[in-house]
Structure formats: structure tokens, C-alpha cells
Computed example of a mutant assay.
Amino acid sequence: MSLYKVAKSAVSLIFYPLYRIRVIGKENVPKHGPVIICSNHISNLDPPVVGITSPRDIYFMAKGELFDKPLLGRLLTGIRAFPVKRGMRDRNALRKGLNILEGGNTLGLFPEGTRSKTSELGKPLAGAGFFALRSNAAIVPCAIIGPYKPGSRLTVIYGEPMDMESYRARKASAKEAAEGIMNEIRILLENYNSQHASLDK
């Protein structure tokens, strides 16, 4: 069994009961072909939570400096993370991400680039839009609704894949595409707050 599978099983055993994780819309993640899962970012624990709730194995970007530590770097590589410089302007990371998608795999992104300390959505960086426009991957918006508090309910929602053809047809910028993705995440959050909040009581 790969390190990724071992880590996913171990984290699942801890996180599911600890945070009472509920997953909505898992069926919206395509079973085959390249996929980009784009999520809001409210905690440093978001990557493992998306990793264990997604039906697909995911490659994530991680801060480049983390890979400078030999042991941690090997561990991150083993769980399919790869380094990126802050701001997502790292050409090697962009190329690596595209290669992952060209191989029919799944890439996990947090368009905001950094976690929100208020849980409010921030402005997206252009990186998510770049990958969406430069690949033929299905773009799946994802919303994580906390808090990360033991015993509380943590909900992860996967929305229906976005249609990016209109963005490509009008030659939209990466920034515009990223903003469109963030808007889909915002809709997931707003719909949940208006329709499903009572389930947490």
C-alpha cells in the first residue's frame, strides 16, 4: 500500500469522528479524467480534509520552503504534494500541475492562496484560472464549512463541475476565470447557509 493510501486511511480514522465530517455532493466529482478541485481555505487542515473526503486521490501544492527539510520533504512528496513559490508564479510548479492534469489525475487548489482568518472568502489568485483555462480538466468547486472544533460538525460540499467553455471562447484572463470559480464556491456556501444550516443543530 502506498504512503498516500496509508496516510489517507489514518487521517480518516481520526478526522471523521473528531470533526463529525459530513460530505455532500461527492458524486459530483468525475470518476475519470483530469479534475481540478477548488476549495475555500479556512484552516491549515483543509488539504487533508479535502484529501480524505474526495473520491479521487489528489495532488496538492505546498509551500516550497517546506521541502527544504529533508524528512518533511520526502513525506510531502510521498503524499503527492509538490512545491510552489508564494504567489503561484512558479513556472516549474505550473508545469508540474499541467503535467498532473494531462495524466488524467486530480489537482487540488485553494484559489485564495492563503487561509482566511475570518472564514470569509478572499480574492482569488490567478493560478486556479490558469489551470482551468490551460487544461481540459473538469473544475469542481468545493466548500468547507467549519469550525474545526472537536465534536462540532464540519461539512464538505462538492458542487457540480463548471463549464469553462464560455471563458475560453471569449479568451478570458486567468484572473477572470479564477473569480468565476470563487463565485461558484460562494454560491455553495450561500446555498448551504440558507438551506442546510438547520441540519447542524
Rank of each mutant, 00 (worst) to 15 (best):
K26Q: 15
L45N: 11
V140F: 08
I181Y: 06
I79D: 08
A10Y: 03
A62L: 07
D90Q: 10
D57W: 11
H196L: 12
L133W: 12
I139L: 09
R168W: 00
A197P: 00
P17S: 02
E184R: 15
G73S: 12
L189A: 04
E120A: 10
N191F: 00
D163Q: 06
M1G: 08
K149Y: 07
F67L: 10
G180F: 11
R86H: 13
L18D: 02
D200T: 04
V140I: 09
E184A: 15
P147T: 09
Y148F: 15
S119M: 09
N99V: 02
E160V: 10
A172D: 13
R153Q: 08
A62V: 08
F130Q: 02
L3G: 01
I187E: 07
D46L: 06
V140R: 00
M1F: 05
I58T: 12
I145E: 01
V156L: 08
R89L: 12
L72H: 02
G33C: 01
G129D: 06
S152Y: 14
I42G: 07
E165M: 09
V84W: 05
E176C: 02
K117N: 14
L71T: 13
I157G: 03
M1N: 01
N193W: 06
K171E: 15
I79V: 15
G33E: 07
M61R: 10
K123H: 12
G104F: 05
R91F: 08
I79T: 06
A137K: 04
P83Q: 13
E112Y: 13
L189Y: 02
G122K: 15
G122P: 07
Y158N: 01
R86N: 06
K69M: 10
H196K: 08
E65Q: 14
A178M: 06
L94T: 01
R186T: 00
R86F: 07
L101Y: 01
I24A: 04
E165H: 08
V35R: 03
S119L: 11
M88V: 14
V23N: 09
G51Q: 03
D68L: 15
V49E: 04
G129N: 03
N28W: 04
F110P: 06
K63M: 01
G113C: 00
K96V: 00
I52M: 09
T77R: 15
F131P: 07
H196F: 11
E160H: 12
R20N: 15
T106L: 07
L13I: 13
V84R: 03
P83W: 13
I187L: 13
I37R: 00
L109N: 06
Y192S: 01
A10T: 14
S2M: 10
K31N: 13
D68A: 13
D90P: 12
A7S: 14
L13V: 10
E102I: 01
V156G: 00
Y192N: 02
A7C: 11
E176K: 14
